[in-house]
Design a protein around this nucleic acid. Structure first.
Lengths: 336, 336
DNA sequence: ATGTTCGCCGAAAACCTTTTCGGCAAGTTT
DNA sequence: AAACTTGCCGAAAAGGTTTTCGGCGAACAT
């Protein structure tokens, strides 16, 4: 019965018009705020539309206008940790009533990505945002797509595309400055797999930051994996080999979590004897830690917002290309 | 220039037809595998379509067919932990080439939810999946929507709607059985805020499970918050007041994480002296723990897949209502 | 009274695709 | 040779909306 009493064919502009006793042309103009329609007539149309709860068919409108007011966000993310904040940022930037953003998930699979691309293009989205789960360059979707594309977080390999990425090098430098401003001088770096651009960039930032202060890294950058386990192992080795260490910059929050665990179990006071910083500001890790973990926020909402603005500009005609880096932001908590 | 050389008006079926020297009717039939078209003609049309990389306009098709082959997924999730697995499950169940699922995020805000609902309905989706971030009942989207709706994870308050939820009561019972089969008898329960249905359901399952074995809970269910901090605090108190405890069922993985930390620091051997189980099977917590945490998977992909099937049935006419519970699955690791 | 402006409305075209149905030519049957 | 079937193709309608443009009546100027 829930099916039976559903209005099988939904109300159309023609229904509104006949109810209001006008033509569809006038009804359309009345609803869209065009002038050339008498105030009384407009009022009649509005109540008629309200009465039958008319919603304009976006398919027909899009077909005619050649624009749908829709942008697609294709993500390769598996758990939404990167893509949802970017989605939110983009939505906020587009503002309500204008453009809708719809997400679909390719799970890092290029077949699925192509499938979603086709689905979105055939539905005539006005633009695309492509999100990856690592900052390593990824293959371009192609040069002669019928709509503009912005790559977010994971840049395109093609310089003709526009990509937006967090500035990991500068973020890492900022961490160094932050620790040095807290009086730390013997700084180590524990990070993830060396084949990640994020690991390389952050390590480079740490190096350059220390160099600019005339310092150098304690024991060199320790590459491993992005896990708590590695954080624990590497930290245990670190404090044994370098008992004078007074700061650890970790490649992400999980490694930092592992570092904190090992330090606590070894009786090292944080932040009394040593400071620890994470990266990514994944809240479930930073505020679960003891003490709460100082980290670096990579501003994904801002990335999404800028992606939306750039897309809007491109839809309106002006186009950019290349890689744009966005600043990160240190979130001080209790480990520094 | 990237804009300038974009084909401003995309190829249409008319272009294909004129290139192949046939009418649009024949071109359509050729591309859609209809019979009534000569093999040679079909081949000509196909190469023509390929040549100008024609993609059919889904707007026009949907306008005509009254169906768009699209379902919308509205989530209230903030980090995608629940909604993305459900999205994936739904996609897999629909299968490729048939239906596309697009996600939009209301962030738990009913204004935004209404906005996205309107956006999806005006784009004439064929159905909706509504996902929440807690298992507490949520307000219905309404009874006379023009398309079928399935609520997943967070059920609707309206019994006329169809809702799919994980069976937390049975899941908790299974945990009890699991611990008892491992020889545990003195079992405690530490869980989250008492105003969460998930906390109540899981606590009830634990109670009922123990009763069915003639046992009872050690110290009663400990409600607190879904955090590591609470897991640590409650566990410290627990082992002080009940040194004979040999099993802790935690309301989620973060609480379990906190419990493990406190046990390790108190010198309790896990799983030698005591077993610990989490809930939700959030991998980043279960495999980061020492030892790796046994947990309960709430099968979100299966939930999404069933949502897709139910939606498909409803679109085809048959309709159900009420709440369907899906079984959970214990994932044994090293803490039991 | 004639011509002109102005305000408001409606018919029709356009967007792109799918499906129905009529038509035409070639081949088949009586 | 006439009647019929078969295979293939194309014209046209339909779907819902927006925009353009012509029209019509009323108010105004001469």
């Amino acid at each position: 019965m829930t099916i039976a009493d559903k209005p099988q064919n939904r109300p159309t502009l023609r229904d509104v018009a006949s109810l209001a006793g006008v033509s569809v042309a006038t009804a359309s103009k009345a609803l869209n705020g065009r002038d050339q329609v008498h105030p009384d007539t407009r009022a009649r149309v509005l109540v008629a539309a309200e009465k039958i709860s008319f919603t304009p068919n976006a398919l027909a409108r899009g077909l005619l206008a050649g624009q749908t007011g829709t942008v697609g966000l294709i993500t390769g993310d598996l758990d939404g940790r990167f893509s949802l904040p970017i989605l939110m940022g983009a939505e906020d930037a587009f503002g309500k009533g204008k453009m809708s953003v719809f997400l679909c998930d390719a799970r890092g699979d290029s077949i699925r990505e192509q499938y979603h691309l086709d689905a979105l293009l055939s539905r005539r989205v006005d633009g695309l945002i492509v999100v990856g789960s690592r900052t390593d360059p990824r293959p371009s979707l192609g040069r002669n797509l019928p709509v503009p594309v912005v790559y977010a977080y994971a840049p395109s390999t093609d310089d003709n595309d526009l990509s937006l990425v967090p500035d990991d090098v500068q973020g890492a430098k900022d961490c160094v400055d932050f620790l040095i401003s807290r009086g730390r001088r013997k700084i180590a770096h524990i990070t993830g797999q060396p084949d990640y651009a994020a690991a390389q960039d952050r390590a480079r930032g740490v190096d350059e930051g220390l160099s600019s202060h005339g310092l150098s890294l304690l024991g060199g950058a320790q590459f491993g994996s992005w896990t708590e386990q590695w954080g624990r192992t590497a930290t245990a080795r670190l404090i044994e080999q370098h008992p004078d260490v007074d700061g650890i910059l970790c490649g992400n929050d999980q490694i930092a979590r592992g570092a904190l665990d090992t330090l606590r179990e070894s009786g090292w006071d944080v932040p009394g004897r040593i400071s620890v910083m994470g990266y990514d500001n994944w809240e479930v890790f930073t505020t679960g830690a003891r003490p709460h973990l100082t980290s670096v926020d990579i501003n994904l909402e801002a990335l999404g917002a800028l992606a939306a603005r750039r897309l809007f500009e491109a839809i309106d005609g002006s186009s950019r290309s290349g890689i744009e880096s966005l600043p990160c932001r240190i979130v001080p908590r209790e480990t520094t």
